[in-house]
Design a protein around this nucleic acid. Structure first.
Length: 116
DNA sequence: TGTTTGACTGGGA
DNA sequence: CTCCCAGCCAAAC
């Protein structure tokens, strides 16, 4: 909210990582929600690309980011195709057929629950 | 340097 | 319900 915080955010990618790090444990959000929060609703693909690069950054919980219907669309980009689901299970999130169960209830919208 | 692809999304047929 | 298309833009080809 403050200019000092905004100044901290230089690139789109950095902003994405920052938001993803703030996702509470056991909650999930979508690429589009992050993109919208960052001001470019239609740049959700870039959020996905940022995630693709982010797996080298250890503190980015990319497993908490799914697509708008709760599908684990990025699971194949993890070390193993099952890792994403396993990480979510550890946090108490149930996955069924690659879909987050009770997604709408677990959905964490940064533009509604996060205030900078 | 031009084209294709993609961890996306919303709208339309 | 499914399928298709346009917009988005960095990276890969």
């Amino acid at each position: 909210m403050t200019s000092s915080l905004n100044e901290k955010y230089k690139d789109f990618f950095e902003q994405v990582y920052q938001v993803v790090r703030l996702i509470p444990e056991g909650r999930v959000t979508s690429y589009g929600a992050i993109a919208k929060f960052l001001g470019s609703k239609k740049s959700s693909r870039m959020v996905g690309w940022a995630m693709n690069v982010s797996h080298v950054l250890k503190d980015v919980p990319a497993h908490r980011v799914v697509n708008r219907v709760g599908l684990l669309s990025g699971k194949n980009h993890f070390k193993t195709p099952t890792l994403m689901q396993e990480l979510l299970n550890e946090e108490g999130v149930t996955i069924e057929n690659d879909i987050v169960v009770n997604f709408s209830n677990l959905f964490w919208d940064p533009s509604k629950e996060l205030y900078l």
